[in-house]
């Protein structure tokens, strides 16, 4: 069972909700793994008490050009969707930091001038905090191939029947978010009642609709008397999974690194609703 937590806008509470949902489900006797796929700025680990972590370096294949074999035909340049290849003065030149490792140029090159070599892009850290296993992908500074690393984090902890993976997504609605939510059984979109969040939420919903993924929205930092966001969701017929109230106490607890118990305690009814959505998805998925 794969559950992604995404949002569109950053800072709405994806990591907060990922941690709280993981702990809540674990306290209900589930076998939970938390995967931090926000590989450009992973921070779920800051709130986990794990002791020593296991590390694995991750590489991605990038083409290398043998200029003595390159005939400058330009097939590779034409094929590359990321402008990572250019034929300059009759020879192909690669700009590896723009490469997305699709491998197309190596297949397309008919003169045998291209072969792939592995370059390191990041690290996967694995640890456990009590009954919760957690994986963190951390992209190396200066690297941009986050989808490649996200894919490896997801592969490291494959989907198993009877187990729940909670996957913390990067913000935005582009490749890193798409790689994270892809093939997930359900997505919770975390939104706050602000114009920025609502704008990005709508984009995230469109993205998930196009991908054919099931989702519901967690309204976070909800203020009493404000109903613009919930009204918008009701109008769109979008399922509201839970409404979490804005709380200064919670913000203070967050700053000290110890907010999870307080959040679960003060919003227990809301987490039970989230659990029910997960359980009902689970019944459907595990029947298939």
């Amino acid at each position: 069972m794969q559950i992604a937590i995404a949002s569109g806008k950053g800072g709405t509470g994806k990591t907060t909700m990922s941690l709280a949902i993981s702990h809540f489900l674990s306290s209900r006797g589930n076998d939970v793994t938390l995967l931090d796929c926000d590989v450009e700025e992973p921070n779920a680990g800051l709130f986990m008490h794990s002791g020593s972590l296991k590390e694995r370096r991750v590489t991605t294949p990038v083409p290398e050009i043998d200029p003595s074999k390159c005939i400058g035909c330009g097939v590779c340049e034409e094929l590359c969707q990321y402008n990572a290849l250019a034929v300059l003065k009759g020879k192909a030149v690669i700009f590896p930091e723009l490469c997305h490792s699709c491998g197309g140029c190596v297949i397309a090159c008919s003169s045998g001038a291209m072969k792939e070599r592995d370059v390191e892009i990041g690290t996967i850290f694995t640890g456990s905090d009590g009954s919760i296993t957690h994986l963190t992908g951390k992209l190396d500074i200066g690297k941009i191939q986050s989808p490649g690393l996200i894919g490896e984090v997801k592969k490291e902890k494959k989907n198993h029947i009877g187990k729940i993976n909670i996957i913390d997504s990067p913000p935005g609605n582009s490749c890193p978010m798409i790689e994270t939510v892809r093939e997930c059984d359900h997505v919770f979109l975390v939104a706050e009642p602000s114009p920025f969040s609502m704008n990005d939420l709508e984009l995230a919903m469109e993205t998930l609709d196009k991908m054919g993924l099931k989702y519901s929205v967690i309204v976070n930092k909800a203020k009493e008397g404000e109903n613009e966001l919930t009204g918008f969701l009701e109008k769109r017929n979008t399922e509201i999974a839970a409404v979490i109230s804005d709380s200064l106490d919670l913000a203070v607890a967050y700053s000290s690194g110890n907010f999870i118990d307080l959040l679960i305690e003060s919003e227990k009814g809301e987490f039970e609703k989230i659990e029910e959505i997960i359980n009902s998805r689970r019944r459907i998925v595990e029947c298939q």
Binding site: Y82, N83, A84, A86, V87, L88, K89, F95, L98
Partner: peptide, 29 residues
């Protein structure tokens, strides 16, 4: 373009046969 604009623009300049480029700013790639 999403990325790599500098490289492809450089290609335009090179393919046009220019030996000198006059511009405001130039990036690393």
């Amino acid at each position: 373009s999403v990325q790599g604009a500098g490289i492809q623009s450089a290609k335009h300049v090179i393919d046009a046969g220019a030996e000198i480029l006059i511009t405001g700013n130039i990036g690393p790639k």
